[in-house]
Write a protein that binds this DNA or RNA. Sequence first.
DNA 1: CTTTTTATGGACCGTTCAGTCCAATTCGGT
DNA 2: ACCGAATTGGACTGAACGGTCCATAAAAAG
Lengths: 195, 195
Amino acid sequence: MKIGRPLEFDPDTVVDAAMALFWEQGYEATSLQDLLEHMHLSKSSLYQTFGSKHALFLRCIDRYHERTMVDLQARLDGRSDGFQFIAETLNRVIQEVNELANPKGCLVTNTANEFAQSDREIARRVAAGLAGYRDIFRQAVVKGQREGSIRSDMTPDQLANYLVTGMSGLRTMVKAGADRADLRQAVDVIVTTLH
Amino acid sequence: MKIGRPLEFDPDTVVDAAMALFWEQGYEATSLQDLLEHMHLSKSSLYQTFGSKHALFLRCIDRYHERTMVDLQARLDGRSDGFQFIAETLNRVIQEVNELANPKGCLVTNTANEFAQSDREIARRVAAGLAGYRDIFRQAVVKGQREGSIRSDMTPDQLANYLVTGMSGLRTMVKAGADRADLRQAVDVIVTTLH
DNA sequence: CTTTTTATGGACCGTTCAGTCCAATTCGGT
DNA sequence: ACCGAATTGGACTGAACGGTCCATAAAAAG
């Protein structure tokens, strides 16, 4: 069995580069030119490996989702306090305001806002991404309720939907250029109302 | 003083048409071709009247902001109950899910998500738009606190930031294709926590 | 060293983009 | 009727878009 010339690049590495671009600029605003330069790939290699810009984008979303879920789950599992996990997760969104000049937000919610329901495959992935976030929050709420740090007069599902909504809202506020103080107030209310 | 040939169109009417397109599709996704067809204008007329696609967009945002603010203020003033106003405003966001196949959301928050801070003039208008929403909510909270229907252990500013965040989050959830039931739960929690 | 398999660079494609320009037209004022 | 001012349609522009294709290069297997 003959095997041809091997790839000169690591697929995961170049997908990471593409992901960073899409994350920062969105799908439409990221040109093939952009991608080729930052992935250090020739056009042929990109098309041979990924098929199309669209397919590459889907792959980036999948990778993003996978990574953020693993990260969130690890942070949740490695922490006894469900309430603290939630507070910390929301506060991380605010952190971006200082760290980046123009915050990238979350690839999933960015994509939700760019495409809405206009692309089936993308819509499916966005829905899956949101469902994942909701599930993480649900777990955290269950944990917090068991520990007594989160109110028990509302179901974990209710509070999970509430928290996903809150986090998405924060992301939009960050992109809209809201002051840190205003974001802080919003987070404070969300966190306070959990007790 | 001689006056030339008069315009064959009403500027306000054609701006409304452009606004609807930008609202539905976003700035980049709306081509000049699109605009010309829906505005029933020739290219020359558009450029002569508005200068550029970008300038037209700014004008659309201004018009949108002006109209929504007038509408919100009128609804707030014509209602004695601050709490009810807030509940109704949040519920209206959910309504879209049934009414439109793919919901348009809010032009201001859509724009925030599309451009973030990458365009100064747009960023300014987005910030102004959000500030307007926050002010409306602040008024409603003050009213509700006076009436006793809204908790008084938090300042109107705090709750206003909280509510703007919540509404923005709902908009993202709608675009992401969230179930009506899930949105309902999120709104219920937000509304409940106001008491 | 040859053959086979595959990657690669770069030329090329048709389309669409926002924007410019001008000749023809249309209307108000005199 | 005429003139001046302003609108209008349509041709045109250069650049950028995503995508295709092929000749060349390179490496692994025999």
